[in-house]
């Protein structure tokens, strides 16, 4: 890396700030997008619209968080979407079989978390213990998980119990459920960031050999990262289920690559050892806001995907370029 000899004081201050808060560029992009959304469609900043945005993109936020823990350790998980699909159909079928009451929902959610955990452990085992290359190995497991999801529910369409999606889309004491969920997530992420595992994952990502030589159980830590990833993918599946109110064995497939994009956009390094989950959450919202902005800006419908693709690519570039300054 080249170093610029003529760094101004302002520059090094910015660098320190970025090193401490790598998600600042993402936060800036988020603010710009919110303003742009407001200009094109003032209504899009209403409480109601923002609730809808969070409700729809909660799943991607959680998947991005899931991906982040794996990327901390310089690994990657291309099966998060497949895990989410598998958990989605598992809980739908369980809830149906158990009658769709409140208790059955809770039981199904418990099983769902366990399924996500199990998938994560499988990924961790093949990547960390068997030392297969993460990209291809998790692609292989994603095929396996998709197969499993197809066994459980061969075709999309089984509905979720009313109590489930009513809760997810509903309000308590005037505040929408998703905001409680978001607050819980924030607390959970804050607590997780303080755990030994989070620090150890970053240490492993920074240099596996060094981490090993300073006595860290590298293999166990990487498996732990994948396990955490699996659990968050399961939580994402709950949100997908709440949002779509039905089961679909392929629902998560297209979200995998978005989760990787969100991690990068949030300022984490794919090479590991550096990053924040907060950035990934913000980045998931950025992807959501880009989609809604493209819509509100009056883009002809068949041009929308293209403009979205360009905007996400541009945001990725900005994210990578700016966050690199914090580390160089």
């Amino acid at each position: 890396m080249t170093t610029n000899a003529s760094l101004t004081a302002h520059d090094s201050g910015l660098r320190r700030l970025l090193g401490r808060f790598p998600f600042l560029p993402a936060l800036f992009i988020l603010a710009v997008l919110l303003i742009l959304n407001g200009i094109f469609e003032p209504n899009s900043l209403s409480f109601r619209s923002l609730t809808g945005l969070v409700r729809t993109y909660m799943a991607l936020m959680l998947l991005a968080v899931a991906q982040t823990y794996v990327v901390y350790a310089a690994d990657i998980d291309l099966s998060v979407g497949a895990i989410a699909s598998l958990v989605n159909v598992t809980i739908i079928v369980l809830m149906q079989h158990m009658g769709g009451g409140g208790l059955s929902v809770l039981a199904a959610l418990g099983v769902g978390v366990l399924v996500g955990l199990a998938c994560g452990l499988v990924n961790g085992f093949v990547v960390a213990a068997l030392r297969l290359q993460a990209i291809v190995a998790t692609f292989a497991t994603s095929i396996f998980f998709t197969g499993l999801a197809l066994v459980i529910l061969p075709v999309a369409g089984m509905p979720a119990p009313t109590v489930f999606w009513r809760t997810y889309g509903g309000s308590f004491f005037g505040i929408p459920f998703v905001f409680y969920a978001a607050a819980t997530l924030a607390i959970l992420l804050y607590l997780l960031a303080r755990t030994r595992l989070a620090t150890q994952l970053l240490a492993v990502g920074d240099g596996q050999q060094a981490a090993f030589q300073s006595g860290l159980p590298v293999t166990a830590i990487r498996i732990g990262g994948y396990a955490l990833c699996g659990v968050f993918a399961a939580l994402a599946a709950f949100c997908i289920t709440g949002d779509t109110a039905s089961g679909d064995p392929l629902v998560g497939a297209k979200m995998t690559l978005f989760s990787v994009a969100a991690v990068v956009l949030g300022g984490s390094a794919l090479s590991g050892g550096f990053g924040t989950v907060a950035g990934s959450v913000i980045a998931a919202l950025i992807i959501g806001l880009i989609n809604s902005l493209v819509f509100f800006a009056g883009t002809p419908s068949h041009w929308q995907n293209f403009v979205q693709g360009l905007a996400i690519l541009a945001a990725l570039m900005v994210g990578v370029l700016v966050s690199r300054r914090g580390r160089a």
Partner: peptide
């Protein structure tokens, strides 16, 4: 075998 079983075998074999 079903599509689902096929996918599972394919994924496992790749691994």
């Amino acid at each position: 075998i079903d599509e689902s079983g096929r996918q599972m075998v394919f994924g496992a074999t790749l691994l």
